[in-house]
Design a protein around this nucleic acid. Structure first.
Lengths: 345, 345
DNA sequence: CTTGTTAATGCAATCGATTACATTTTAATT
DNA sequence: AATTAAAATGTAATCGATTGCATTAACAAG
């Protein structure tokens, strides 16, 4: 009852030839005659041969498996990127191993080690929030394997990366608010030490400046990505003598908190206060009002990451590519003062 | 600049011993002296040794990688199960490879083959909608490897599975509606050929019957899991001479459609019509009103699947376990007529 | 001092496939 | 028919770790 396995040796024996010939035939080696190839394939089929990729990887020195490390696999952004990667690399015969860091560097290190031990072809990673040392990543490069960072990157290491243009995303969101007649625009920032939030802040400032709107420091607040925190901060903002008339948030969740607090306190969104989030989480389209948000192009990001990886693999030199994807502002009701006005007229 | 690699042979050479001793020392073999072990570990550390799990898997005949096949990796239910699995099996040193079937049997077959070729330790799968033949799954069992189905299972194959008790989930949802005073309860079903929807329908019927509420066939409708379809069907329902006063939907999305249509047409939820969805998608908690839904225990399901897998691996016999998880009704505003009344008083 | 016993280590085959380097076969040329 | 080039296949080492079966060393008992 033991699982019988067919190897190239059985095929060889059955055909009265050798494993090397069988191997070459299966790999369509030019030095093997057409008839032999045909016989080999037929016998392989007949014996139910299934290649052992592990053995071949061991010999070849590299597998067709890519390691992906993300903080959490069930966050829509990450799962969407993962989907994009898998979809793309599958075409070239690669599979993906998923590891989760749970936002801990230690886990990241362990994962990198496990993946390298498993002889992955390369590693794709979105760093945990607390990752400040990158020695474990350097190890990947030292082994001569492609390392690609996405979304959460680091300046401490020189390698390929794919991120969205956070500056541009913020800039276009704020510009959109201004064009819709909002003037006192607050900004919910994430931790400004993190590059993506730094960039979004820069975009916010630039949009204001370019439109000759003075920056009000009371309007710039660090808010964790969380509904309740969003509510809290909104409440504080709306107690200012000079209330903001719009909020641009670095996170969909704190933006949601803002909308919730505002509507519960009889402010109308978008008429009284416009709101824009960041991330374009699926829930944004189901809210009332529907929420304008900056889409992070997660699937496209996955696809791009995959392409960079494949490119890196084929020219096996360590060429570092930095790809900047342009995020897309998805305009919905929460920021659309103009249309609301028109309809009212 | 080639990536230098340390193998047990280098360690052996450095210590003037042999690879077998090193191997045994690293694996804490009882026949190796304490001093030797210590020397080996120190040298391994010094030389930056990293095991090649591929080589060891090849020799041992099995790897520490589990294959997971799901229709789409970015659906919250699946990504959540995946997270649960990864979290659990990581403790035992396993990694997971993710494959997507995109709801196609052909892809499923290809994935199974690729995974088997990669010598995975076992396969965990949620079937694609159209999977009616299961030969590719039988192959897994024939190879003597654990096969575990979750959520979307099949009667055509005898193996372990983990699903939620859909009957119970529906039963408790409908009972909850009845207890809240609703009497004319409509049911949005999925395709009733699919077992999970069949079960939910059974639960719906049983709850009505047990409470002496007659079943009205006009109230039972097949609706694709889709917001717009939900709206459409709701409109039809509300045009009946005897309008329903509650809707229990097999899907959060069609339930959302119902809520949207109702509120847009001046029906109050939950006062005029109660609504309950199925799935407890994250968006349900952000709606206005927040939506009651049956939680599918996705993370727990992942954890359970992982445990069944590990159990199967250790007693390497093919014991088939069928686990039925109890879903949880998450009551929120959309079905809570009573509380709304009390607050009004 | 020989024999027996146990502990510690070494030897060599093995997992399944690949590949550099022969060797043999076939076909072409003189 | 002999020579030679080209085509097809075979031999054996290799990838890195594991493991059954010796072998050696150390020590105790007779």
């Amino acid at each position: 009852m033991k699982p019988q396995k067919t190897t190239i040796h059985e095929i060889a024996k059955a055909l009265n030839t050798t494993a090397s010939t069988v191997s070459r035939a299966l790999n369509d080696h030019p030095r093997i005659s057409k008839e032999t190839k045909k016989r080999v394939f037929e016998m392989a089929e007949k014996l139910g041969y299934e290649p052992n990729t592990m053995a071949s990887s061991l010999r070849r020195g590299h597998s067709k498996i890519i390691g992906i490390i993300v903080p959490y696999a069930d966050r829509i952004f990450f799962s969407s990127v993962i989907r994009g990667i898998e979809e793309e690399v599958k075409k070239s015969g690669y599979n993906v191993i998923i590891c989760q860091s749970y936002e801990k560097v230690e886990n990241e290190e362990e994962d990198v080690n496990a993946l390298l031990s498993a002889q992955v072809a390369g590693i794709i990673i979105s760093l945990s929030r607390e990752t400040d040392s990158v020695d474990h990543l350097k190890k990947v490069i030292k082994k001569g394997k492609p390392l690609i960072l996405f979304d959460r990157t680091s300046d401490l290491i020189s390698t390929s990366s794919v991120v969205i243009d956070d500056y541009h995303g913020a800039y276009s969101a704020v510009t959109h608010l201004i064009q819709n007649g909002y003037k006192r625009i607050a900004f919910f920032s994430g931790n400004k030490k993190v590059s993506i939030f730094k960039e979004r802040f820069r975009g916010y400032l630039a949009a204001l400046t370019d439109n000759n709107i003075p920056v009000n420091n009371d309007y710039v607040i660090e808010v964790p990505s969380d509904v309740d925190q969003g509510k809290l901060v909104t409440e504080k903002l709306m107690k200012l003598s000079k209330k903001p008339d719009a909020i641009f948030s670095s996170s969909d969740f704190s933006a949601l908190g803002a909308i919730k607090w505002l509507t519960q306190n009889n402010y109308k969104v978008p008429e009284d206060v416009g709101v824009i989030g960041f991330g374009n989480d699926p829930f944004t389209q189901y809210l009332e009002p529907t929420m304008t948000s900056v889409d992070q192009k997660s699937k496209e990001m996955g696809k791009t990451v995959a392409q960079v990886f494949l490119e890196q693999i084929s020219n096996n030199q360590q060429i570092h590519r930095k790809v900047l994807l342009t995020p897309e502002l998805i305009t919905r009701a929460s920021s659309d003062k103009i249309r609301v006005k028109e309809i009212a007229v």
